[in-house]
């Protein structure tokens, strides 16, 4: 018991240094609270099992009253990165960038240059664009070239008793509650969802993937 208390104290100290927040919500000072703050990233097999789905959420912790006025930033591109050769360098990207009420998707396409600096790959053959779904409307989706696209506000799919976790790390609790409280219940995010044929992603069974928010 003594030992575990000591470790909790150490954990509490560590937490202060680490500034634990959530999935990726407000994870670092430079992006916290900005339109480029990624909250979560998902990649999973689609309802059509020949497809993979990529989801990026930005601008987390939107209350319902704040969601109607939230919008995607035209200076922020969401870029899904796909490494299909196992070296953790992207071989393909899917770029999503808003213009005038629509979200435009480019790719899967080879990046001009891999890494932190990108141009929009306007010459990609795989493209789809979709009207950004307004708050309060049914989801608007679009498809092209075997791809499906969505962009707009959604319920934050992340769930975690983050409040209790901070209590534990602060030394104010020794463990989680038997019935936890979802700190993210009732809050929204701005979502970008793209579904593409697996055959367009290459590789031999496993892909390394990550998402970036890139600012102009």
């Amino acid at each position: 018991m003594k030992k575990s208390m000591k470790f909790l104290a150490v954990a509490a100290l560590a937490a202060v240094g680490f500034g634990i927040i959530a999935a990726d919500h407000i994870d670092a000072p430079a992006v916290q609270g900005t339109t480029a703050d990624i909250t979560d990233y998902y990649a999973f097999q689609g309802e059509n099992t020949s497809n993979l789905v990529f989801v990026a959420n930005v601008q987390g912790l939107l209350s319902p009253s704040a969601t109607g006025s939230a919008s995607f930033d035209e200076n922020v591109m969401v870029e899904f990165n796909i490494d299909n050769t196992g070296d953790n360098v992207e071989d393909l990207v899917i770029q999503a960038i808003p213009r005038d009420g629509k979200m435009y998707f480019f790719g899967p396409v080879a990046p001009g240059t891999p890494g932190a600096t990108s141009m929009v790959q306007e010459n990609a053959t795989n493209t789809v664009s979709v009207d950004i779904t307004p708050y309060g409307s049914n989801a608007i989706t679009a498809s092209n070239n075997g791809m499906m696209a969505f962009a707009g506000p959604r319920d934050d799919p992340f769930f975690f008793d983050f409040g209790k976790f901070t209590d534990i790390l602060a030394g104010n609790a020794t463990g989680f509650d038997a019935n936890g409280t979802d700190t993210f219940a009732g809050s929204n995010v701005m979502s970008v969802v793209i579904e593409v044929p697996k055959s367009s992603l290459g590789g031999s069974g496993t892909l390394n993937t990550w998402v970036e928010a890139k600012k102009k």
Binding site: A23, D24, M119, W210
Partner: peptide
Amino acid sequence: PDFSGTYMTADQMGRPAINTVF
């Protein structure tokens, strides 16, 4: 639309909670 310009990484993520926790 005009898509010209250079875009620089501001945030990125692979697995959940990595930057925040570690």
